[in-house]
Design a protein around this nucleic acid. Sequence first.
DNA 1: GGATGTGAAGTAGTTCACAGCC
DNA 2: GGCTGTGAACTACTTCACATCC
Lengths: 231, 231
Amino acid sequence: MATPRLRSKKLSEPTIARLPVYQRIAEGWLNRGDLKIDSRQIGELAGVTATTVRRDLAGLGSFGTRGAGYDVKVLIERIAEALGHDRLYDVVVLGIGNLGRALVNSSNFLIRGARLVALYDTDPNLIGHEIAGLVVQPLSDPIPAATVAVICTPADAAQDVTDLIVAADIHAILNFAPQVLTVPLGTAVHYVDFSIELQILMYHLNNGTGPLGGGLLHSLGIASTNPLRVS
Amino acid sequence: MATPRLRSKKLSEPTIARLPVYQRIAEGWLNRGDLKIDSRQIGELAGVTATTVRRDLAGLGSFGTRGAGYDVKVLIERIAEALGHDRLYDVVVLGIGNLGRALVNSSNFLIRGARLVALYDTDPNLIGHEIAGLVVQPLSDPIPAATVAVICTPADAAQDVTDLIVAADIHAILNFAPQVLTVPLGTAVHYVDFSIELQILMYHLNNGTGPLGGGLLHSLGIASTNPLRVS
DNA sequence: GGATGTGAAGTAGTTCACAGCC
DNA sequence: GGCTGTGAACTACTTCACATCC
């Protein structure tokens, strides 16, 4: 058996969002020389229950050893496979302002499998300059048929840029502009919106869910020094 | 009746994340002079169903008019109330690299109610410089008892900075560093992680859920040009 | 003993369908 | 007519509890 090359049937959306966190935890563990980790340890560090961790990982095929936990290296590898890190992804970034520069220069943004292939902007002062090893191009240049486009433009430019992206036959967009995009059916858009994150925190501050309750457990979870529940 | 000052009992986590999107849509509507909007229109622009919009808004008290929709101004105001925008939030930002600068200079990050009160960094070249109207301070300076702390440091500095934040009696943290934080029970941490967003898109690219399926409908939803389902 | 993996139960969120009101 | 607001049905996710295997 041993789970064939078939990309594990279908993972739930929350699971997909947690896998990169588990992977990062495992990498930290590996760097410190630990070769085994169990679901309780992962759960504590990720801010979720051990059961959730086991269910998530069970979805990638059974590779844990009962009584011992998971082999850290295998864990990292399995998550990489599940997320598709074994393929190569060409990424273009449009809008090289502060945010765009922060992203392309960040050692954490482009993980294994992702490769930056082009940068675009409209600012004449930026065009021609080399950033992160690439020369910033004007938006009038043709956009290559990359895998993922990242939008870091101001909100009012985001839709125009999106139209260019769609015309370039790119079907996945990561949008940092605070602007809902209109795209043809078949193009995936994922939104990252800083102010929304701040507003969610603000809501919880007002309603005790956060500071007083102690168990926020958001999208990616909350870590606490008393990881073991009072039970 | 008319919903008293009581902060609407309790909103679900997904609802809270959608409200800012509705609000932004309403603001765009208002800027274009439209004073009425209905749940179907909001839903199309936000990438969710009209029913979901109505349920979300019903949680803020019944202020829609049957047959007509919602008054845009009232809608904006009600969401602001629900999210607690009528209070004042002091925000400190720690780590003024590219990302920190992008945030504090962004017109979208600090919404009504949020006020930037201090910036911190360790880089001697930055300390003393004025950014976004504030002088960057060294981390050795005392941190004021603000409402929210935003961490934009590299991953390896994040935990140290967190300890300073906790010592300063701040109970809400927005963390942009790719690092799970350990905080005392009672401190809310919300994570924003760019590489995770990219990885989620990559997963969907591999599994057809995104580009081929057409209906991603992520955390914040996907917009499509054919908003009406083929039904 | 100890930790995985998983049916079964529980909980949360979404969608349906329609009564109620404008 | 049209659109809101909501009980009821459904779907998705999490947690419990335990059989299973090292």
